[in-house]
Amino acid sequence: MIPGCRPLDADLAGDLDAVATRLGWGGADKPAWHGRGLSVGVSPAGVSARSSARVELRPGGRVAVLVGSQEIGQGARTVHAQVAAEVLGVPLELIDVPATDTASTPYDRSTGASRSTTVAGLAVQRAAERLREQIVAAAARRGVPESDLAALAPLAGDGSAQELGGGSGPALFWEVCVAGAEVAVDPETGRVDVREVVTVADVGRALNPSLVERQDEGCTLQVVGNALFEEMLFGPDGVLRNGSLVDYRIPTVGDVPGRMTCVIVENGDGPGPFGAKGCGEGVFGGLTAALVTAVTDAGVRVPELPMSPDRVWRWIHAS
C-alpha cells in the first residue's frame, strides 16, 4: 500500500495456492538439477485516467466505438467492441471499432501500462451507457421499439474514465501476477530448460478469457528471453556490440516452455468495466523471479541476469 495510491486488490494467498497446486508443490521428489520456484509480481498500472470515448449509433443501425487506445495485437478493439455490445445489448457483429482518427476520435493519453481494457474500456463503457440512455429516451419519445436501431439513428454518447481519479502515485490499479516455474538445468552445458510455467492472472474480470491467456503466454515468452539470454553488450567504447538479430537473440518458437498454464482469477475487484483489471505485463515481475528461484532450487546460485548457459556453467563450477 502506497499513500495516495489505490490499495492492492488481489487474493494473493489464493493465487499462490493455485500456482502451487498446478506445479505439484510438495509432491514427489524432484530429479537432480530440477528446481521449482514461485513469486508474486505486482506492477503499478493505468498511469492516468485521461481516456475518453464516444459510441455512435449510425444511420443503418450499426454502432461505432471511437476510442484512442490502439490495437497493437493485444486485442483492444475486440474488448472495446465487447464492452459496447454488452452495455447496449446488441450482437458483437453490429459493432465497428474504426481506426483512430484525431479529427473524430476523443482524446486518449496512451496505449500501454495495461490500461486499454481498464481505463479506455471504462470510458467506452460510460459512453455506451450514455448512448443507451439516449436510445431509450428517443424510443419513448418517438414511439419506436428500442430494438429498431436503424429507425433511432443517429445518436451518440460520450464517456470518460475520469472517475478513476489521478491520485498522487503511478497506480490507478495494481496489476497482479503470481507465477511459478519448473526448470531443469543441464550441468554440463549450463542450459536452463523451462519445463513448466504457471501464471495466475488475477484480473478481476476476464472480459475475454482467451485474450487474457494469450497475453500471459506472450509475456511468458518475453520473460524467458529476459531471464535466460537477452542482453545488450557494450564495448569499452560504449558502442552496442550486438545490435542485430543475428547477435541479439530474442525468444523463438523453440524457446516456448514445455507447458504453459494460465489460471484466471476473477474476484471482480478491479476498477475497470465489470470489475476488470489489466493483465499481461504483470508476468514480468512474477515469472522472472520465479525462474531465478527455480534455478536456485535446482542448485545454482544466481547473482545476475540473464541466466545464459555460459554463465550458469560458470556459476556451477565456481561453487
Binding site: 542450459r191 539470454f229 543475428v246 547477435d247 541479439y248 537473440r249 545464459s308 548457459p309
Partner: peptide, 9 residues
C-alpha cells in the same frame, strides 16, 4: 552430429 547454440549460429 551435435550442435550447441547460444545466439543465432
Amino acid at each position: 552430429h551435435q550442435r550447441f547454440v547460444l545466439v543465432e549460429r
